[in-house]
Design a binder for these strands. Structure first.
Lengths: 347, 347
DNA sequence: TGACCGGCTGGGAGCGCTCCTATGATCGAG
DNA sequence: CTCGATCATAGGAGCGCTCCCAGCCGGTCA
């Protein structure tokens, strides 16, 4: 039975089928199927016999055969519209992946890594999705309009990590964070500590998360009676370099600033570096606050105050929404997850 | 034909089958199958007709049905024996994934993300692999003996990223880098520049890559007639913190050291930070060399001299080996990829 | 001219499973 | 004691595809 694992043994040693299990258990194929899929109306004796036979034979159902009749593959795509050098260094993606993996594994669904950075990969994705995937979890960067359009018209169930304009489309399923509220809390924290010239380094303006965070910054300043002049707004790209360079430009333009709110941690770390180069002490001269509460925030020097969001929870939720959608639940659903501020040494 | 994408439209609008394509093309199912799978001995007229019919109907083969008869799923697992917080921040993993993805996509094979950090996930992996995956690409951390054992006895085709002791097993398929040679080149570079007290921060000693890199350091010192006393060897864990703390310990123990070779870039960056805190100038007082040539190396200040390996190429190669293994190629094959030194400001 | 061979084709068999229907067994109510 | 209801079961049908075999056709050789 337990033949040594030669390369060919896997192909040669025919795997036990349901038929075989049924025979050994002394029941019919139908009954065996019912037992293994947990259907009701099976006698306890039959359940017991089938279970034992399956265990003895080390039976594993052939999922291709099952898929063929059920129309479900038990496979979900994790779509990434981004070159993956960037992708994998993004803690956001890692969190989504882990959260989704946990939720899906519990449902016996596996994650297929699907890159969609260029047209070629996008075609391949569609091909894959149309025949082999039950649905898609989409984590995208900017400039994803084409991808979203394609996916929508293909009719494949999908849930988006609402970091782009999709987060305003109520015809889609998505999960997003309270970007505006989180940013508002961060900046209010700064005003309460007496900061008066609070600049911001934004995300790309084609990414919803970026836009919302600027809005939160804006509202917090307004509430504190502070001016939010354009000079205080420096566009960034969510990358370390853009934070670094943006900070240098801000210092040149607004020498008397006493705080910066960066729309993510990577940019905040870049800003930190620029400030240190410019001889500004953090937080004494300039306070810095980031967003995401990533490892980079905790590891920075000084440790970075940052807006924390439960990214893994978001991944989990995305997976659950997708499973619901796949099993036919009605209407698009959107979820917005709360954030909270983690105060550290930089502010 | 292009019905609006209602949730149900996908299930309701039955997808075209091969039968339908054949009918439209005026040939039999068998001929249509032959055309679409590129088999020989089909008339040009038939090829043309089937191709057109398939295109007109937007036909996509049902891969479950195909798998059922061929026994191949066209799915390969990317197995990661590691908590994935760490995983995703590891440029090594990202490179392997991208390289493998490219090679596999060309063969119409998709990558399934399979975490195997704990026993639970390992069980699930086996379940998945035994029925749904054609093979596995294994990227593992340390302490993977159990995983490897399980995989070997399961007889599932697998190729390992040879970063652990698997890289010495000639009964397995794996791809590895010239760790010893690379380290040797790096350290020789330091001795040629006149460095005399060259310390090293190692990787975990249960990871082959770490051990080999220490060996290269050792050989280079011996060739230069320098002592490689134990005080110069500081154990690390491939993490930034361990590099940082290790460097502090080295400075306390060997105050007159004038160079450090870190077994990866993350640790080198940590060492850089520790040196700066201690007031040592890099490279004037102490030269630093890393390994991997990751983004962290290029982005560090000063930019890090590092041993470059073609990780993406390794991923590509792993995928090709796996495809070969799956299609029945003989005997385990192992490949070792070259490295080369990239000299930057830190040395 | 007839036997033969090669290229091309049609369609049956069957992959392993789930779904469905028909049937038999059991039981309480009338 | 009979009858309908309820439950457990067996096994056929069929998912969409690939593989294989038999049959057809036209051309070539003796």
């Amino acid at each position: 039975m337990t033949s040594p694992a030669t390369p060919s043994s896997r192909a040669a040693g025919t795997r036990p089928t349901l038929e075989l299990v049924a025979e050994r258990a002394g029941v019919s194929r139908g009954t065996a199927s019912r037992v293994l899929s947990g259907a009701p109306n099976v006698s306890e004796a039959a359940v017991e016999a089938v279970r034992r036979a399956a265990a003895e034979l080390r039976y594993r159902p052939n999922l291709s055969a099952r898929s063929l009749v059920t129309g479900r593959t038990g496979l979900v795509g994790l779509v990434v519209n981004e070159t993956n050098e960037r992708l994998f260094s993004d803690p956001f993606f890692a969190g989504i992946a882990r959260g989704a993996h946990t939720a899906l594994a519990a449902a016996g669904v596996a994650l297929v890594l699907s890159l969609a950075a260029d047209d070629d990969e996008r075609d391949r994705l569609l091909e894959l999705a149309s025949t082999r995937l039950d649905g898609l979890l989409v984590v995208h960067g900017h400039g994803d309009a084409a991808l979203v359009g394609t996916l929508v018209s293909s009719g494949i169930p999908a849930v988006y990590a609402g970091r782009t304009e999709t987060a305003s489309r109520t015809d889609l399923w998505w999960v997003d964070s309270e970007n505006e509220t989180g940013a508002h809390e961060a900046v209010t924290h700064l005003t309460l500590r007496g900061r008066r010239r609070i600049a911001t380094i934004t995300g790309p303006d084609d990414m919803r998360a970026g836009v919302d965070r600027v809005a939160g910054w804006n509202r917090a300043l307004a509430e504190a009676g502070l001016a939010a002049d354009d000079a205080l707004v420096e566009p960034g790209l969510f990358s370390l370099e853009s934070g670094y360079e943006g900070m240098h430009r801000l210092l040149a333009r607004v020498p008397d600033l006493d705080a910066v709110f960066a729309a993510n941690d990577l940019m905040a770390v870049g800003a930190l570096r620029a400030l240190q180069e410019a001889g500004r002490r953090v937080p004494d001269d300039v306070a810095v606050v980031g967003f995401d509460d990533s490892d980079a925030a905790a590891g920075a020097q000084p440790a970075l105050t940052s807006v924390s969001q439960d990214i893994e929870g978001a991944g989990h939720l995305m997976a659950e929404l997708l499973l619901a959608q796949v099993s036919g639940d009605a209407g698009p659903r959107q979820e917005i997850l709360p954030t909270h501020l983690v105060v550290r040494g930089s502010s």
